[in-house]
Simulated scan of single mutants.
Amino acid sequence: MRFLRTLLFPVVPIYFMVTWLRNKLYDLGLKKSKAYSFPVICVGNLSTGGTGKTPMVEYLIRLLKEDFTLATLSRGYGRATKGFLMATENTTAQTLGDEPYQFYHKFKEDVVVAVDEQRQHGISQLRELQNKPDLIILDDAFQHRKVKAGINILLTSYHNLYTNDIVLPTGNLREPRKGAKRADIIVVTKCPLGVSEHDKERITKAINPEEYQMVFFSTIDYSEAVFSDSETLMINSLKPFTLVTGIANPKPLLEHLDRNGSEYEHLNYKDHHNFSSADIKVLEQKDVIVTTEKDYMRLKTYNTLKDKLFYLPITTRIEDSDVFDSKVIELVKGCH
């Protein structure tokens, strides 16, 4: 795959110019963005996945749910449906998409969860609800410029900073690095424990934020327990187990388990992997399976796995969280 990407390097300038021109047309107003008189928060990245958007959306839900009627709106990547769809007791990860279904599974009492490829249409549908949301969080919509979000939060992974990358197909960027200037807040995610002040200064200098931008650093907090719909176990009691991941970057999880002294075999699949019948047959032979919360949403539908399948929750911990929280709330108030 890396060799193929290298071969495709001549395509990089073409991709760069196409995405640069598209953004320029929006910047000049020749392509239209729709702004809103209520808060719309966009959580996104420049890279192709693996920056921690899902735990960031969950962080924002926890931060804002007491003061606002919330909705999340996602594209619903990999779902078997099209158009606008709201999460209900009858929806599944297959019909809604694994990440929005995770939001519904965890926060259904606190947030309306919906999906729509066309974000403008999705927002209008949500605002027609009897109990309409007064704040909408857009998941992975930084490049969806038909909507002009009031607040843009851009994520970049510590191990794969956008400042060190180039655009597709050789690199991982969906658009040129200059797109970061649209962000109000930039969060460097998945930082190692105890990242030094020198390192943070180096990264901030590389990002070179504008005067209106703030840079924060975050780490992943892993639960000491794993969960199923009916059982909770301490992860240290599981020896050995099979780790199943279908995420863009499992490296931080592997590093955590290794530090924890866990004994496991790792079955690694691509991001948003659709598990085939052959995959399930392999998993049926395993004694205990630990997976990510996102993968659990898809795998738990298989009855043959339910007695052996657990997920390991994660949360985002932001350094200077009080400053981050205050900044988000300040920006939200400015959208009214």
Rank of each mutant, 00 (worst) to 15 (best):
residue 3 F to T: 01
residue 8 L to V: 01
residue 10 P to A: 06
residue 19 T to M: 14
residue 27 D to Y: 03
residue 27 D to L: 04
residue 31 K to P: 00
residue 33 S to N: 01
residue 36 Y to H: 11
residue 36 Y to R: 07
residue 37 S to K: 15
residue 38 F to P: 07
residue 41 I to T: 02
residue 48 T to N: 07
residue 48 T to I: 14
residue 50 G to W: 03
residue 50 G to P: 15
residue 57 V to Q: 12
residue 57 V to K: 07
residue 63 L to S: 09
residue 64 L to S: 05
residue 69 T to Q: 13
residue 70 L to M: 09
residue 71 A to Q: 06
residue 73 L to E: 10
residue 73 L to H: 12
residue 75 R to Q: 07
residue 77 Y to D: 05
residue 77 Y to L: 06
residue 78 G to P: 00
residue 81 T to I: 10
residue 87 A to H: 02
residue 89 E to M: 05
residue 89 E to C: 01
residue 89 E to Q: 13
residue 90 N to E: 14
residue 92 T to V: 02
residue 92 T to K: 07
residue 94 Q to Y: 15
residue 95 T to V: 12
residue 97 G to C: 01
residue 98 D to G: 07
residue 98 D to E: 11
residue 100 P to T: 06
residue 101 Y to D: 01
residue 101 Y to V: 00
residue 102 Q to Y: 01
residue 103 F to W: 11
residue 103 F to Q: 07
residue 113 V to Y: 01
residue 113 V to G: 03
residue 123 I to V: 03
residue 125 Q to G: 01
residue 125 Q to E: 14
residue 126 L to S: 04
residue 128 E to G: 03
residue 130 Q to L: 08
residue 131 N to M: 09
residue 131 N to F: 02
residue 131 N to V: 06
residue 133 P to V: 07
residue 133 P to I: 09
residue 133 P to F: 02
residue 138 L to T: 06
residue 139 D to N: 06
residue 141 A to G: 14
residue 142 F to K: 08
residue 143 Q to L: 05
residue 145 R to F: 01
residue 149 A to E: 07
residue 149 A to L: 06
residue 152 N to A: 01
residue 156 T to V: 09
residue 156 T to R: 11
residue 157 S to M: 11
residue 158 Y to N: 07
residue 161 L to Q: 13
residue 166 I to G: 03
residue 167 V to Y: 11
residue 169 P to W: 02
residue 172 N to K: 14
residue 177 R to W: 00
residue 185 I to N: 05
residue 185 I to D: 03
residue 194 G to H: 08
residue 195 V to D: 04
residue 200 K to R: 12
residue 201 E to C: 11
residue 206 A to C: 06
residue 209 P to K: 00
residue 210 E to H: 14
residue 217 F to G: 04
residue 219 T to N: 12
residue 222 Y to D: 11
residue 224 E to N: 12
residue 224 E to T: 08
residue 229 D to H: 06
residue 230 S to T: 15
residue 236 N to C: 03
residue 237 S to E: 15
residue 238 L to T: 09
residue 239 K to H: 08
residue 243 L to Q: 09
residue 249 N to H: 14
residue 252 P to I: 03
residue 252 P to W: 07
residue 255 E to P: 00
residue 256 H to F: 10
residue 258 D to N: 14
residue 258 D to C: 05
residue 262 S to V: 11
residue 262 S to M: 14
residue 268 N to R: 15
residue 269 Y to M: 02
residue 270 K to V: 00
residue 273 H to A: 03
residue 273 H to N: 02
residue 273 H to T: 01
residue 274 N to Q: 02
residue 279 D to K: 13
residue 280 I to A: 10
residue 281 K to L: 13
residue 287 D to A: 06
residue 291 T to W: 04
residue 291 T to R: 08
residue 297 M to C: 12
residue 298 R to F: 08
residue 299 L to C: 08
residue 299 L to K: 09
residue 304 T to K: 09
residue 305 L to Q: 08
residue 306 K to L: 00
residue 310 F to T: 04
residue 311 Y to I: 04
residue 313 P to M: 05
residue 315 T to I: 11
residue 316 T to Y: 08
residue 316 T to N: 13
residue 318 I to H: 10
residue 320 D to S: 15
residue 327 K to F: 13
residue 329 I to V: 15
residue 330 E to R: 10
